[in-house]
Amino acid sequence: MSDSTLQPSLVLDGAAVDLGGRRVLEGVSATVRGGETIAIVGRNGAGKTTLLRAIAGLCPLRAGSVRVGGSNVETLRPRTRATRLAFVAQRPMLAAAFTVRETVSLGRYALGGSPERADAAVDDALARFGLEGFRDREYHELSVGQQQRVSLARAWAQASPSTTLLLDEPFAAMDLGEVARSIAVVRAHAARGGAVLAVLHDLAMAHAFATRVWVIDGGTLAADGPIEETLEPARLERWFGVPFARHPLGLTPDLRSPRTLREP
């Protein structure tokens, strides 16, 4: 959609969050446009998950604002919000014996349209994340990495090209092949005009996924810039408290190869 390029997908203005009477996020301001891929990195407890939840409208802001497609996320109706933002939580949870296909179709909850259209969107999502072979398997029979692919597929089924994807450690339990293919698919979402924000721990993964990085440190946005320039060893040591060196075995899956998206 053309308006996603004119209007920012997200505008954060001094966003602050208190949890249990403690300030866990302070004065976060940033603008995100459609097509951007942003890795959110930082120590455990720095506020990454809280930031993602705040953007998704899942926790109240103590100060500041988050605007999604021009509207305040806190006053959007959940159904409308779901057309602009899709969210994948860090720990998958499902309290029912749904099949993989049924689970992915939960992403269509807020979206109207014909059953045929919903079916087509669900099938497309299953195919993109290599889940066709699992469609009638029960969700709880899958490995955690496969369950994370199901969560991503659910978000994909929910998303239109302009929807912003908010992903909390989405690849943490995946094997290398699953990671590479999943990153390629979410980057394809950025290529069609949607923004993608992902909390990540692995910096190599962050490099493969994102063009921009947010470093969260002590509840503040400590750095925001192009990933190559921002993540340099001296600053990383300051943020993470350990020294960094470039690894001699600089081998990562090749995301630019067409073979990445081929079925194993």
Partner: peptide, 21 residues
């Protein structure tokens, strides 16, 4: 029923799919 289905996800994910939890 569709909301009950989506509520089988966590509160956060159910809310993010559009359920008024």
């Amino acid at each position: 029923a569709p909301a009950l289905d989506a509520a089988m996800l966590s509160d956060d994910e159910a809310a993010a799919t559009g359920v008024s939890v």
